[in-house]
Amino acid sequence: MSNDMFSTKVTITNPQGLHMRPAYLLAETASKFDSNIELVKDDIRVDGKSVLGILTLGAAQGTDVIVEATGGDAADAVAKLEALLQSGFPSAQETSESEKG
């Protein structure tokens, strides 16, 4: 059994920050992995598989969030979550409101 730990730091780029839909998508993706996954912002550390947990980060645009995964599929988990975070969670919902900064 592997206990490899992988982590990466991502800056939140979407204007709305980690609101509910991104939190949901992140938790959903994280839940597909066996690894233990945590998101860290400053001194707050939450379960990356929990929507509520991710929402408690209150991560606004411009915040740095660290993704940490420990377990057999940790490398893949970190890569997938990093890609998702970097995608900026494009949405059909608020494209009309796509103001900057």
Binding site: G17, L18, H19, V51, L52, L55, G58, A60
Partner: peptide, 14 residues
């Protein structure tokens, strides 16, 4: 137009 306030309300609720 107040995205951070929305985020802060969600943060508190969760």
């Amino acid at each position: 137009d107040k995205l951070n306030e929305h985020l802060q309300a969600l943060e508190n609720i969760s």
